[in-house]
Design a binder for these strands. Structure first.
Length: 827
DNA sequence: GCGGACTGCTTACCT
DNA sequence: ACAGGTAAGCAGTCCGCG
């Protein structure tokens, strides 16, 4: 039983950094102070400190990786750690050279963590003394034998092998008595809080209820503890005291709503700061003696959405997520009527949300909590930070730590960009920075016997084997300038290894060499299995993001576009030369995208030979990912159907599968899909084509005759991605006469506007359902549409286009199916 | 006045 | 504040067209 460091902060009253520590035996949070640590920053000019009060100036030698030399810098220490903020001034009137500082942007507690090697999320016996478990250490030593790079790898293995605690926690949800059609605004908090429900990990259900003067309790609600108040202020005070007992408080949108509302409501009652447990920082709500986790923020992080959960959810809402992960949604009560509910209904409704919120942290053996712990361990960020900051910040934090450990100077972002901010290639897409991945155009047809081979972790492998990092790309050495690849204009350092290359290389090796297989080991207990699955996913997140972050200038502390450009360029080179070699071996390459090749090659030995060539040439594992009975390629890229040997059907990029496509078309598409699924051999194709023609014809005829089950089957569903006021802005173009051209208002936004006229509210992120009609706007939101409004011709065009993607490979044509001759078209 | 070439905007998807 | 590449639909301009 240990203590786990979970967070860190700075106490300005005591001018001290402190750590928040979870004590496993008592399940309480402790604080560890370090009164001796002070913030500091570096400069090359003593004059820089003239206007800023530092208590001590010393000289330090730092290794400057950008210039590959060790330099002496002045280190100014601040008596009051907050004074470091004064180095970030912007003074236009500064009449001399602007003072230049390094490492003055780090938060004080983060600087402390990096300097002291504080192991976030890891077990400790007591302050400054990490817990050592002999079994885990032995396991770590044994595992380490599998790998060549030892230093970072050993630290990483420890992070993955020490167990993660199951933090004691409770979830909270509030209900506010709003007037009809008025959405309660947390910054105003003018409506009373009438119900607060809390669900604890052990299963306690607790309700705080404000009794209305005109409403009596009908019966005792289904809770374990019920606190009834007639005075709202008393309720808030009792609630604040109550929730601080929990080391972790979980909310869904507590940052944006619940906690913000409670705080501002408390201010309205004149409750003093010392009794309000919430601190606001930016758009986040932190608690002093509790860790507040807002799941809404966490699930919104793109890396979590796309890699950890494979993009299974699109919009982040409690209802969507709980249906997906808990197979249970919110209760079907109209949100506008909480005032009309009796107490039991109100509490049930509120409690359900609290339960779902907690449930999102417990499903799959606490997967979500484990993800947070694992991210925190690698990045060294406090758990609250990694649930609120995107993947670029996780990676940057890890690199900050490595810089401090190795006594590297942390460069200012502008230092990197001034030296190597320029890219050399031209992107295919207007507005993009550089040339990215390559896609091989497929030939239209239905080839049988297709193997899909993928370069395992192509970009991370490139980073590792080609030594890519901000310091090694276009390094300052004359003798490295010849070290170029694939006709790319950048050269790579031959003298030093990039930190990024070591780090991503270690993660890559650990995943490919151990955790990918180990997480599927049958001897693991369910909770071990869940933990290792989580580890594998988190490694994947760090690896996959590590290529893109370098191209996010302004968003990533080590931003350096040539790094991403070089990785993509070498990736192109590897896949291109592999395709070429396959061709030379007589293997037909049907299609390829970024790191994959689709090969028509029934001879397994030839595939193995190709794999060997890739391994020998590039040290990359060309994995056989999938085997298809046959595939349907139109000549479109990123668009195909593949029927696997086991009958599973992969559909990529096709309109019939896209989320915005009306059900009516999806139904026809799925019928065609099941025909294809049943095809075993090539000679069954003609028969299948006849069936497919019939499906196409029926879909067409039914539309023509205005036969559909329900108008909702014809609804398109589109996300409103921007604020409504951001549509229809000036474009980059002007007319010949010089007047500006404004962007057109898209159809789906016109539908939103029509809906808003009727009093519905729509905001960025919501999905609008609409049908195509013949009125002036050419659309109607589904709520306002009737069968007679439908513009059938538009739907026929859509059907034609959607089916084209599947009819092309089958060498069928819509006109022919409909019995049209070419002439008919013009009649 | 209308159709085609072209551009830009938007969404959804692929790796 | 990870990236670029592709498909598709829509709406607008510009130009030709006796």
């Amino acid at each position: 039983m240990s203590k786990y460091i979970v967070s860190a902060g700075y106490d300005k009253n005591q001018n001290s950094v402190f750590l928040k520590v979870y004590d496993e035996p008592t399940q309480k949070l402790e604080e560890w102070y370090d009164f001796n640590y002070r913030s500091y920053c570096l400069t090359d000019n003593l004059d820089s400190f003239r206007e800023i009060k530092v208590t001590e100036v010393t000289t330090v030698a730092k290794y400057d990786a950008l210039h590959d030399n060790t330099i002496d810098l002045y280190k100014g220490t601040f008596g009051n750690s907050l004074d470091i903020k004064k180095t970030s001034f912007k003074d236009e009137n500064f009449d001399e050279v602007m003072p230049k500082f390094w490492e003055n942007q780090l938060k004080i507690q983060m600087s402390y963590i990096y300097d002291k090697d504080t192991k976030m999320g890891m077990p400790y016996d007591y302050q400054d003394c990490p817990h050592i478990d002999n079994d885990v250490e032995a396991r770590t030593t044994k595992l380490l034998e599998l790998f060549t790079e030892k230093s970072i790898t050993k630290d990483l293995i420890r992070l993955f092998e020490y167990p993660a605690p199951n933090y004691k926690r409770a979830s909270l949800d509030i209900e506010v008595l709003n007037e009809e059609k008025k959405i309660p605004r947390p910054e105003v908090a003018n409506f009373p809080v009438i119900c607060v429900c809390i669900k604890t990990l052990e299963g306690r259900r607790i309700a705080f209820v404000l009794k209305q003067p005109n409403k009596e309790f009908e019966k005792y609600p289904d809770v374990d503890e019920l606190y009834i108040f007639t005075d709202e202020k008393d309720m808030l005070l009792a609630l604040f005291k109550f929730i601080q007992e929990f080391p972790f408080l979980i909310t869904f949108n507590g940052d944006g709503f619940d906690l913000m509302y409670l705080r501002n409501r408390a201010y309205r009652f004149g409750i003093q700061n010392e009794y309000i447990p919430f601190n606001i920082s930016g758009i986040s709500m932190y608690m002093r003696s509790t860790i507040h986790i807002d799941l809404y923020r966490f699930f919104q992080i793109n890396a979590i959405r796309n890699y950890a959960f494979q993009g299974k959810y699109k919009d982040v809402s409690l209802d969507v997520l709980s249906k997906l992960f808990l197979k249970q949604g919110k209760l079907n009560e109209d949100k506008h009527s909480v005032g009309d509910m009796d107490y039991c209904t109100l509490i049930n409704y509120c409690m359900r949300d609290a339960e779902l919120t907690l449930g999102l942290t417990t499903f799959d053996d606490n997967l979500v909590m484990n993800l947070m712990t694992a991210i925190s361990r690698i990045s060294r960020l406090p758990i609250e930070e990694c649930t609120r900051k995107a993947v670029g910040r996780w990676i940057a934090s890890f690199l900050f730590y490595q810089h401090r450990q190795l006594n590297y100077l942390i460069p200012n972002p502008s230092d990197i960009l001034e030296m190597k901010g320029h890219v050399a290639t031209k992107a295919m897409i207007k507005g993009k920075q550089y040339e990215g991945a390559m896609v091989i155009k497929p030939k239209s047809g239905t080839p049988f016997g297709v193997q899909d081979v993928d370069c395992g972790s192509l970009y991370p492998s490139v980073i590792k084997f080609y030594n890519i990092g901000y310091a090694t790309v276009n390094c300052p050495h004359e003798e490295c300038k010849s070290n170029t690849f694939a006709e790319l204009p950048h050269w790579i350092c031959k003298k030093h290894q990039a930190l990024e290359s070591i780090f991503i290389g270690s993660l890559r090796d650990l995943r490919l060499g151990w955790y990918k297989k180990h997480s599927k080991d049958k001897n693991l207990t369910p909770s071990e299995k869940s933990w290792y699955k989580c580890i594998e996913q988190v490694i994947k997140v760090f690896m996959n993001a590590s290529y893109g972050v370098f191209a996010t200038v302004g968003g990533f502390a080590f931003g350096c576009p040539p790094v991403s450009e070089e990785i993509a360029g070498i990736g192109r080179y590897i896949i291109q030369t592999t395709a070429k070699h396959a061709l030379e071996m007589g293997i037909l390459v049907l299609y390829g995208d970024t790191d994959s090749l689709f090969l028509k090659e029934p001879n397994k030995e030839k595939i193995i030979e190709l794999q060997k060539w890739v391994m020998d040439t590039y040290k990359i594992d060309l994995e056989l990912d999938k085997e298809y009975r046959f595939m349907c390629f139109s000549s479109r890229k990123k668009n195909y159907i593949g029927v696997q040997l086991n009958g599973d059907v992969d559909i990529k990029g096709m309109t019939g599968k896209k989320s915005h496509t009306p059900i009516y078309f999806k139904n026809s598409f799925n019928e065609i899909k099941s025909i294809l699924k049943n095809i075993q051999k090539e000679d069954e194709m003609p028969d299948a084509k006849i069936k497919i023609k019939k499906i196409a014809l029926k879909a067409y005829k039914d539309l023509k005759e205005r036969k559909w089950n329900n108008i909702e089957d014809l609804a398109f569903h589109m996300t409103v991605n921007k604020k409504l006021s951001d549509y229809g802005k000036k474009t980059s173009r002007t007319r010949k006469d010089g007047t500006p051209i404004y962007a057109a208002i898209p159809q789906h936004i016109r539908a939103v506007r029509l809906l808003e006229k009727e009093g519905y509210a729509m905001e960025a992120g919501s999905i609008i359902s609409f049908v195509k009609t013949r009125n002036e706007e050419k659309v109607l939101p589904i709520e306002l549409a009737h069968n007679q409004d439908i513009d059938v011709d538009k739907y026929i065009k859509f059907l034609d286009s959607m089916l084209g993607q599947i009819l092309d490979p089958l060498e069928l044509e819509m006109d022919e199916i409909l019995g049209h001759t070419k002439l008919d078209r013009f009649c």
